[in-house]
Write a protein that binds this DNA or RNA. Sequence first.
DNA 1: CGGAATCCGCAATGATACTG
DNA 2: CAGTATCATTGCGGATTCCG
Lengths: 117, 117
Amino acid sequence: MKDLVSRCPIEEVMQVLSGRWPTLLIYYLQDGTKRFGDLRRDNPTISHKMLTVELRKLVDAGIVQRTEFEGYPLRVEYDLTPEGRKLVPLIDALADWWDATDGVRRPAGAAVDRVST
Amino acid sequence: MKDLVSRCPIEEVMQVLSGRWPTLLIYYLQDGTKRFGDLRRDNPTISHKMLTVELRKLVDAGIVQRTEFEGYPLRVEYDLTPEGRKLVPLIDALADWWDATDGVRRPAGAAVDRVST
DNA sequence: CGGAATCCGCAATGATACTG
DNA sequence: CAGTATCATTGCGGATTCCG
């Protein structure tokens, strides 16, 4: 999803939240401050690279706060920003909607509604 | 994004809404019934194939209702389902959040917060 | 430990042609 | 008009390596 095709905010938010990881990372950051390694453990299947890439995206979007401490070994902490915390209930609402509509979904390409003119 | 890595509903909704088109299609379907060609005109840059693929995804998720009429030329209409309409305000909330946080975003990789231990 | 840079395979997407 | 099928292309995302 390289660039935008419309200028509506809808497409712009989705540019940030799309994909498997952004919402999951926000979800895990609800618990409080996390270090890079913590987030890797929370999401065992995310690759090292993806985690850095996705975190940077969230930082640039103002959703996550990155704090880098000096010294060895390196230490970096991630937190939700105030803006990011406002986003949490919205994501939760989507999750709730999903659960509530559980019965409506089709196995994928089931019956087709056909109507005579 | 082939399969799920967690069973939380958050990842499951995003599986459906992720990408450039799903939310845009839902947005355009707010106006009421649309035919295939209408949606193509609403989204000039979406390819024929992508439109069918994405629409099918939304239909399978119970968000969009597909109605096929017989006769020539072929005619198919798309509507939001009741469930789909419930989704609209949630997407709008995300868009509003995005607009409200406009000032917080960085140009992409700007300053870094560094703290001495 | 956290991150940047590189290479690379595979899935997603686009273009085209064909069908009912 | 709407959709399917096929093939070509893109680019995401994983593995690996090197750096502070």
